[in-house]
């Protein structure tokens, strides 16, 4: 079967910073891939290239058979790909329910009732149906992030991208978000997750990837990569985050 995300020799620079230097990666449908690596290694940039929040200089990215070239294709891809950000990025002027229904009605053209039903169902799934009428700033960080996941899921994406979804959270709130992600992985969602949560990677990921200086250095099953890294850079990085 064809990979749902095909990344071929992608380069990207900001000014004179080479953020990505020829990244190639295929991700199968239903696969959960975790990306780790030092700060500035290009993890976010790679993720953002997948739904074209960032334009890349050269190379090719095909998502679910749709190449990211024309504007229509980019919007088509974006509706298939959900993204969860480190800073949640909920819409603060809308309540939780409106956060979940806005894109459904505007982009997916669902009617109000259908969008509402879907939103309530998803809030139950992420465990906070009682917050439907609250505004984002009235929620804890963990609750906000779960709403953000629900908001992305409301578009029925085939792929979910997570960019350090737990790094802005207080430690006691991390698990509630990881639990939601774990459940999602078990359902067979294709996920690309930038995260240094080793527990999550071990439990959910099929593959772990180490990036450094805009390149993929090493990849493999998480257990293997974490306990028996082959490359020196991987060893160095792991020793830093484990200590």
């Amino acid at each position: 079967m064809e990979a749902i995300i095909q990344i071929e020799n992608v380069h990207k620079h900001f000014g004179n910073v080479q953020a990505l230097r020829g990244v190639s990666l295929n991700i199968e449908k239903g696969e959960v891939v975790v990306i780790i690596g030092p700060s500035g290694s290009g993890k976010s940039t790679l993720l953002r290239c997948i739904n074209r929040l960032e334009e890349f200089d050269s190379g090719k990215i095909v998502v679910d058979g749709i190449p990211l070239d024309s504007a229509e294709n980019i919007n088509a891809v974006r509706t298939e790909v959900g993204m969860v950000f480190q800073q949640f990025n909920l819409f603060p002027h809308l309540n939780v329910l409106e956060n979940l229904t806005l894109a459904q009605t505007v982009v997916r053209k669902r009617n109000k009732a259908e969008a509402y039903e879907n939103a309530i169902m998803l809030l139950e799934k992420v465990g906070i149906p009682e917050k439907a009428q609250n505004y984002p700033l009235q929620l804890s960080g963990g609750q906000q992030q779960r709403v953000a996941i629900a908001r992305a899921l409301a578009m029925n994406p085939k792929i979910m991208l997570f960019d350090e979804p737990t790094s802005a959270l207080d430690p006691e709130m991390i698990q509630e978000v990881l639990d939601v992600m774990l459940a999602l992985a078990k359902e067979g969602m294709t996920m690309v997750v930038v995260s240094h949560e080793m527990g999550f990677s071990r439990a959910a990921a099929n593959r772990a990837i180490l990036m450094d200086e805009g390149q993929i250095i090493e990849e493999g099953p998480p257990e293997l990569l974490f306990s028996h890294p082959k490359h020196d850079r991987t060893k160095l990085f792991l020793s830093k985050i484990l200590s």
């Binding site: 950000f85 990025n89 603060p92 002027h93 997916r108 908001r151």
Partner: peptide, 29 residues
Amino acid sequence: SRGQMEAARSLGMTYFQAMRFVILPQALR
């Protein structure tokens, strides 16, 4: 914040939809 536009675009909204429903209502306040 730039994240607002990015979140809106990542949900598949066009630039003008994002402006109209996400950015301007906040900016107007």
